[in-house]
């Protein structure tokens, strides 16, 4: 029954892709808490929409984003000045640009997307973790409850998403069950995915570990915070999500 449902999902996705091509694809930013999802979403909005507009607030407290936020009609323009800025396109670790060893094809330079910043996926949410960041017990429990709802919302969004930027913290071990489960689900649903190795600006970052853990996927190392190697990511997005 479930297999039938999944086959139906893949078939309808194929039919939609062939005959009912969407004008605007919905791209979900997924990943574990504190991987930098909102920082990346803000970076994309600052680059292509308005440098003073934020999609959400990013802090060091996990589960800061507890509701999915969608920004509609973001025009990714590869020829815009902020993308062409050489400083933003420098890749200090050129060995890990792509695991598939294929250069992204230069397609059309513009692509319109809806960007969905999702809450971090986790298998456990302990209110004590929030108290460690100075929250009162009552507030910590409220936040934990909202965070569980956020995880469910992020999972439900997978039914309505056309492509995924899967963010991983390049300073952390990528071999977590959460990462494996997300990738397995995206593969089962035939949803295009780009693995983004974030925080490459930190000395302990090792994007190659991510590339080794998921050799079947393209891995783009970036620093969403510093804006490093974003041009490479935008090029890959234009290639995969068109």
């Amino acid at each position: 029954m479930k297999l039938k449902k999944r086959r139906k999902g893949i078939l309808s996705r194929l039919l939609r892709a062939l005959f009912f091509r969407k004008v605007t694809a919905k791209i979900g930013i997924y990943g574990p808490p504190n991987a930098g999802k909102t920082t990346l979403a803000n970076r994309i909005i600052h680059t292509f929409v308005d440098e003073n507009e934020d999609i959400g607030v990013s802090t060091e407290v996990p589960h800061e984003t507890r509701r999915a936020v969608r920004k509609e009609g973001v025009l990714i323009d590869l020829k815009s000045q902020s993308v062409q800025n050489p400083y933003l396109n420098v890749s200090p670790d050129s060995n890990v640009t792509s695991t598939t060893e294929q250069k992204p094809r230069e397609g059309k330079s513009k692509l319109k997307l809806d960007i969905v910043d999702t809450p971090g996926l986790a298998t456990k949410i302990d209110f004590h973790d929030f108290m460690a960041f100075g929250l009162e017990e009552k507030e910590a429990k409220k936040r934990a409850k909202e965070a569980t709802e956020g995880v469910i919302e992020a999972i439900k969004w997978l039914d309505d998403i056309d492509g995924v930027l899967l963010l991983m913290d390049a300073t952390e071990d990528p071999y977590t069950q959460t990462n494996i489960v997300i990738i397995g689900n995206l593969e089962a649903r035939s949803i295009p995915v780009i693995v983004v190795a974030n925080k490459m600006d930190l000395a302990e970052a090792a994007p190659q570990r991510i590339a080794d853990a998921f050799p079947q996927h393209t891995v783009i190392p970036i620093s969403a915070l510093k804006g490093e190697n974003m041009g490479e990511l935008y090029k890959e997005m234009a290639r995969r999500f068109r």
Binding site: T123, Q177, I180, V181, A188
Partner: peptide, 15 residues
């Protein structure tokens, strides 16, 4: 992986 995702979803309702 689909069952694991469903398990995470079910778990979140019972945290």
């Amino acid at each position: 992986s689909e069952e694991q995702m469903q398990l995470i979803e079910l778990t979140m309702t019972e945290v």
